[in-house]
């Protein structure tokens, strides 16, 4: 019923924010629904009692304006911290694995730069719909699209980024758990949108290297 298990370094951060918001909104949900129910039951005109002639109360009105405003401000600050962490550009470090995901109707073309670390060379390794990433190593995923807008969405990573033609985007992530996940296209891209499905495998470094070698050999 709740969020799927997180599998990237940012997942716990996003989940924590989610729970904070859920608690806050949950409180207000029960507060307002409770008052609504209580008032309707309590002030239901059965005996023909007369209603109070009240036009408002400045104090109360200020309180219910300021309190939510402060809470929302705090939420904004908390969100911004996580957002900056997820989306700020990072330098490309030697340990970082780079991978390009080129979306098209209705497949994900995945490309690794190969041993030389450069794209567009003969040792590039390409797959369709198969994205493998080593656990515990930061990855830079470059996202592009050939035709229409798609969206790169791996629920367990808590990551979503549109793939826009003419506008290359990128996300940074670091898988924390080995496993097999689904890459779901989250932006309507045509009749095959509903099953524009990729397969994400996160695995230990050695297995990942083995997979890369095998994939290259099979080309």
């Amino acid at each position: 019923m709740l969020l799927p298990e997180g599998a990237s370094t940012i997942a716990p951060e996003v989940d924590r924010l989610f729970w904070i918001i859920l608690w806050i909104t949950g409180f207000f949900f029960f507060l307002v629904q409770g008052c609504l129910l209580l008032f309707v039951l309590k002030y239901h005109s059965r005996g023909g009692q007369k209603a109070a002639y009240v036009h408002g109360n400045a104090m109360v009105e200020v309180v219910w304006t300021v309190v939510p405003a402060v809470i929302l401000l705090l939420l904004t600050v908390a969100s911004q911290k996580v957002w900056a962490q997820i989306r700020s550009p990072r330098p490309i470090t030697p340990g970082m694995i780079q991978v390009e995901v080129l979306a098209e109707q209705f497949a994900w073309n995945v490309r690794y730069p190969g041993p030389d670390g450069q794209f567009d060379t003969s040792d590039d390794i390409t797959t369709i719909n198969q994205l493998h990433l080593p656990v515990g190593r930061p990855a830079l995923v470059r996202i592009r699209s050939k035709d229409v807008i798609h969206s790169f969405f791996v629920p367990q990573f808590r990551i979503k980024q549109d793939a826009v033609p003419g506008l290359p985007t990128q996300v940074w992530l670091e898988p924390t758990k080995a496993g097999e996940y689904e890459l779901r296209c989250a932006e309507l891209c045509g009749l095959g949108h509903y099953r524009m499905r990729g397969y994400v495998t996160t695995e230990p470094e050695e297995q990942f290297q083995k997979w890369l070698t095998e994939t290259k050999a099979n080309e």
């Binding site: 989610f18 918001i21 307002v32 969405f153």
Partner: peptide, 21 residues
Amino acid sequence: IIGGLTGIFLASTPVDMYFHD
């Protein structure tokens, strides 16, 4: 109220990253 409160999840950029679309 439910519509409004759920909007707060979507307003938070990192949480929206999960819930968007």
